[in-house]
């Protein structure tokens, strides 16, 4: 069974006035352990597509199943809970909580899940070690470089033990060195721990590392390329 099953999803904005078809009839399955990039030019529907897969937006029609559960019919409250337990997010602007340390940022999501303090602290340290910044446990985001902040964001995304990680333009604010290091680390996690990554990007460096590239054009899949 695919970890993500997308069937005929459409997203139409301004349906009653001037309809805009942001995503048009997309069918896509993502298997566990994939390292996939959704690519395409600006305005092609990448973000809208990712929002629907991540349960941040609801499709106008069609269905999105995560690990067999159809999330397209869930209420806003149910979606919040679903995201908390099943999906990890990495954003372009890192979006860490500036008043918390790296470890607290990672532990925060576990607190939302009701994990005990002892367990949170232990796992936060493990995750920061895994993403290669275990020594930055007590550093605040403003004491970290962009690359380090994005590593904390990846650790935070992993903290909830999600089914997969959605990364929306994760390298857009990073220099080449940091991008390379981050992608190495993500690829390592994917390989060693079989963590599924789904990127939305137009960064060639990400595309070069992805093992599957799904290209969107005007809200539709124009190509779906598997690489070795």
């Amino acid at each position: 069974m695919s970890i993500i099953e997308i069937k005929n999803i459409k997203k139409v904005y301004n349906e009653k006035t001037v309809p805009v078809h942001a995503v048009n009839d997309i069918d896509l399955n993502i298997e566990e352990g994939e390292f996939t990039a959704i690519v395409g030019p600006s305005g092609c529907g990448k973000t809208t597509f990712l929002n629907m897969v991540g349960g941040l937006d609801v499709p106008t029609s069609g269905s999105v199943k995560i690990d067999g559960q159809d999330i397209s019919g869930l209420s806003s409250k149910q979606l919040i809970d679903f995201r908390l337990h099943h999906i990890g997010f990495v954003f372009q602007a890192y979006n860490l909580i500036p008043v918390l340390t790296a470890a607290e940022n990672v532990a925060f999501i576990m607190e939302l899940q009701g994990v005990s303090k002892k367990e949170r602290e232990k796992r936060a340290q493990e995750l920061l070690d895994q993403v290669g910044i275990g020594d930055k446990f007590n550093s605040r985001p403003n004491q970290l470089s962009g690359g380090q902040q994005q590593r904390v964001a990846v650790a935070r995304a992993l903290a909830s033990k999600p089914k997969f990680i959605l990364a929306d333009e994760p390298t857009a604010n990073l220099d080449s060195q940091a991008t390379g290091d981050l992608l190495d680390m993500m690829a390592d996690l994917n390989k060693k721990l079989n963590i599924t990554f789904l990127f939305a990007t137009h960064d060639q460096r990400v595309m070069d590392r992805a093992r599957r590239i799904v290209t969107l054009t005007d809200g539709e899949i124009s190509s779906d390329e598997l690489r070795k």
């Binding site: 409250k77 919040i80 809970d81 995201r83 908390l84 997010f89 979006n95 939302l112 899940q113 909830s160």
Partner: peptide, 16 residues
């Protein structure tokens, strides 16, 4: 706004 959006995205409910 961005930070609140992130918190909602990662699963912080409205009550919190």
């Amino acid at each position: 706004t961005q930070e609140l959006g992130m918190l909602m995205a990662i699963g912080m409910n409205k009550k919190r």
